[in-house]
Structure formats: C-alpha cells, structure tokens
Write a protein that binds this DNA or RNA. Structure first.
Lengths: 214, 214
DNA sequence: TCATTAAATTAACGGCATTCGGTTTCCTGG
DNA sequence: CCAGGAAACCGAATGCCGTTAATTTAATGA
C-alpha cells in the first residue's frame, strides 16, 4: 500500500482544492490542518506535498479558484441585466455581497489572506487575472453609467475603487459581526450599502434628463 | 532565579501589550509567537500565562488597546476642526486612514481578527466601547452635515455604516496591495476614496441654498 | 523564625507542518 | 517477457509552538 494502483488513482490536486473549499465552510483557513484536508481527500498529509509546495501553496490555489468562481458569478449577472447601467452595477454589487456572505472563509482567504502566504504581495499582478477581470466589469459598468449622464467628469478608476471599497468594507465588517446592531440580516445590511452608494451615483446625474456632457 | 526580586520586578501585563504592539510592526498577529513576546518583555513564555489566560487573551488586550488609541487620535482631530461638519468628517476619515496604514498589523488585529480568538463575536458589545465611541463620532459628524443641508432625509446610521465601509474597505484593500496599480502611495489612494465619498455627500446638498426636501 | 502564598522558572506534552527513507506500482527499453 | 529506473504514496521522525505540570525562589504574616 505504497503507491496506489492506476484504477484507484486520485486526482489529489483537484480534490484537495475542492475539499479545502468545502472545509472552509466549517473552518477558517488558518485553523484548517493539512491532516483534515488529507482525510477529506483520502490520503495522508505528506501526499499533498507531491502536488503543492507547502500549505500556503495549497491556499494560493484555493484563493485563485475562488476568484475564478467569483468571476463566473459576475458573468451570470452581466448576462441577466443587459439593459440599464445602474441596474447592472447594483446587481453586480449584490452578487458580490451574496458570494462573500455565503462563503465567508473563502472570501477572507481571497481578500484578507495571512500576510506570510505570499498572497498579499502584488497589486493584482500575482493574482489569477480573474480579479482584474472582475474589476474590469466594475469599470465598464461605471463608464456605461457615465454615458447615461452620471458622474460627469470623474475618473472611472477612482470611482471603481471607491465603489469596490464600500462593498468590500461592508461585507468585511459584517463578516466580523461589526455592524451597527440595527440590522439583523447581514445580507440586508450589505445590500443597503450597495443601494446607498448607487443612490450617491444616481444623485450626480445631470438634473435635466437627456443632458449628456462631460 | 525562579521568582524575581521586588526591585527587579516587571509589569508583565503592561509590557506584554506594548511590546506586542511594537512587534506587530514586524510580524502579523498570527505569526507572532509567545516566545518572541516573552523575549521582548524579558521573561519566559509561561510567565505570560500568569497575566493572560492564553494567547488570544493577550491579543484581545492588544485589540482593545488599539481601539483606545484610535479613539484618542480621533479626539485630536475633533478638537482641531470644530468649524465645518464636512471638514470634520473628512479629517476624521484621514486620521483613520493614517492610523490604519501606519499600523497595518494592529489594524488587522482590530478589524479582521482571527475567527477563533473570540474577538469577532458581537456587534460591538464585546469591544472595549472605544469602537462604539468612534462610531458615535462618525454619526455625530453626519448629523451635523445634515444640519448644513446635506443628505436630506437619510438615516444617519445607514450613512455612517456606508461611510465607514468605504474607508475601511479602502485601507483594507490597500493593505493587501490590492489597489488598482495607478496609485503608488497608499495614503494618497485611500484619501482619494475619502474625498470621493465626501464629494458624494456634498452633492446631495439641496442645490438651491435654503431649499430642503426629501 | 517558619509555614504559606505568590510569581516566576525549567521540564514535559500534544499538535502541527514539514522532511526523510522505504516500499509498492507504473513505465520504458531491451 | 523482463529488468530497472522513475513516480506516488506511506510511516516514522524532526522541530516549533502553545500550553500545562512540577519545581524553585522570594515575599508575607504570625
């Protein structure tokens, strides 16, 4: 029972990633042991080292898989709401909120990884470019909104970062239980922030409908 | 050399907290070992257990000390800018940004603590009330801004959470190096978000001076 | 002065990430 | 069909870290 036979072979790499994502619904990344991952996969801890350099390498793979997942979720939203630019922005924000609150530990791993994992290094460069693509969606939505008269003269990149900051900050605070206690449902509270920001953007629209200038 | 003599006694509890804060400028909370803290304090690791129940208890104390510090920083700002409500909000935001970016690991410990530390439990209840007080500042600033005609008809608590989310999100993303690469200086990028949100708020002011409706 | 308590210390335990050496299975060339 | 090397895994071992136990020394109070 050293090397497994071909018929009972196991795609350890793929299984490790999916099982880790599943285990993240029960346990935070830092508290997840390789022993538990190995047990879920169906192997022993050292076997993982044949497919990942170390624990951080596994977490990085999960991190990347998370971004890929988030990207397809946003793609879905994009397909659903082709009409209004503001509506698309709003729905994109809601999808983001849903993803974060439904997968808290995975979201944490993606956006607040342990500083020694080599995941927090670069400004996007090191990410699977899914993060960049997601940001691209956001930027495109803002440019579209500007075409409809909102945010005259603003830099889309600045607005994108502000928007993203607000939504990320909201879910981040909510995941830590740090919301003003008025709201009981985190999803409602986070969506309230999305709506609030959308209202801010809508308020910058040139007051006379039809007017369109920079 | 078991029990130290009175003249060479050591306020281990206080020293542990300040030394931990200092060490957080080099190492993240989760990577900080009690051995290193003990060495900085001038004792052995088990000695810490006479003053803290366990490592998380030490981290909680540091967490609370961080909030107390943030609170006095905000007090300073409050004293400096007594005039304009929007200016006070902006300066408060800048002080927050400065604090976060100058003390990244401490900020992380305060606002994104490891989920098993018992620090992420309650909506503020369990915090040293410094967090509540900081939020109170924010809310007061918003109410003042409303008195000046901004944000007509909005719930100050909603606005406060949105504002806080935006600033927290911005520093949080910047600390992870996840800003759009256009900005090199994190402080500048974060302050841009603050300014952007302030602009949003200012834009909600009734356009005709004196007019006020929902 | 001497027992008791307080506050550290060194020693020990258990858990975890990671490494090492061995063993079984696959694959390739003769 | 059959070496023999490479590949893939396992059990055992290492070292660090949080935490607890046992031990030592200093202060205290009768």
């Amino acid at each position: 029972m050293a090397r497994p036979r071909k018929d009972q072979a196991l795609d350890i790499r793929a299984r490790a990633i999916t099982e880790t994502i599943r285990l993240l619904s029960e346990t935070d990344a830092r508290d997840l042991t390789l022993a538990r991952v190995a047990a879920a996969v169906g192997c022993r801890p050292p076997a993982l080292y044949g497919h990942f350099r170390d624990k951080n390498d596994l977490l990085r793979a999960v991190h990347d898989a998370g971004f890929a997942w988030l990207y397809v979720e946003k793609l879905d939203v994009c397909a659903d709401t082709q009409g209004d630019a503001l509506a698309r922005l709003r729905e994109g924000g809601r999808a983001y909120v849903r993803f974060a609150l439904e997968n808290p530990a995975l979201y944490r791993l993606m956006f607040d990884p342990p500083p020694d994992s080599g995941l927090d290094v670069g400004p996007f460069d090191s990410d699977s470019d899914a993060a960049l693509k997601s940001l691209g969606f956001l930027r495109a939505g803002i440019v579209a909104a500007q075409r409809e008269g909102c945010l005259p003269g603003a830099d889309p990149d600045d607005i994108a970062f502000t928007l993203w900051s607000a939504v990320h900050g909201a879910v981040s605070l909510l995941l830590q239980g740090r919301a003003p206690a008025t709201e009981t449902d985190p999803v409602v509270a986070a969506e309230a922030v999305v709506d609030q920001v959308m209202a801010f953007i809508a308020a910058t629209r040139a007051t006379t409908p039809g007017g369109s200038d920079a």
